[in-house]
């Protein structure tokens, strides 16, 4: 059994991220909204977010809460359909020389933990292409 780390990760043969898109202005949100933060409209529809994009910004985090493995690369990715996503960069060395702003990345998933019932939590990250 697998469970996504967060609701907006949709598992399956080709996992993807799902956003709530304002039916008036097209603004996208992960997580629920009562009304659009951009235009105030109150209707949303679920949309599939492009799984490819570019690295907008990053930080290599060395100091974190004690249980979090470091260093890791935190990133903001701008997907090819113009949606910003926060996640870790994965399958890359945490070395500024290896990470270039604007580099192409692609969504990938991995098992981040297993609970006592044997259920696997699946997280997502972005890997260089």
């Amino acid at each position: 059994m697998q469970i996504p780390l967060v609701y907006y990760l949709v598992l399956g043969d080709e996992p993807y991220l799902q956003a709530n898109e304002c039916t008036n202005c097209g603004a996208r949100f992960f997580g629920r909204r009562n009304a659009c933060a951009h235009c105030g409209h109150r209707e949303f529809k679920p949309v599939r977010v492009s799984d490819t994009g570019t690295l907008r910004t990053f930080s290599i985090v060395y100091r974190a809460a004690p249980t979090i493995p470091t260093p890791y690369v935190s990133a903001i990715v701008l997907t090819d359909d113009g949606t910003s996503v926060r996640s870790n960069l994965i399958n890359i060395e945490p070395d500024p020389a290896k990470i270039s702003l604007g580099m192409k990345v692609k969504l990938d998933t991995y098992v981040v933990g297993t609970d006592d019932d044997g259920q696997e939590a699946v997280a997502f990250g972005y890997a260089p292409t």
């Binding site: 469970i3 996504p4 780390l5 967060v6 609701y7 907006y8 992960f30 997580g31 629920r32 930080s59 985090v61 974190a64 809460a65 004690p66 249980t67 979090i68 493995p69 470091t70 890791y72 935190s74 990133a75 903001i76 926060r86 996640s87 870790n88 981040v112 933990g113 609970d115 006592d116 019932d117 259920q119 939590a121 997280a123 997502f124």
Partner: peptide, 27 residues
């Protein structure tokens, strides 16, 4: 938050997270 592995994963919070996402989905 510190990452605390629950015994049984259950979605909670606005994102339905099964564990704290700090350090997994960015910082």
């Amino acid at each position: 938050g510190a990452r605390k592995e629950k015994n049984v994963y259950e979605p909670s919070g606005r994102f339905g997270a099964v564990m704290p996402i700090d350090g997994i989905l960015g910082t």
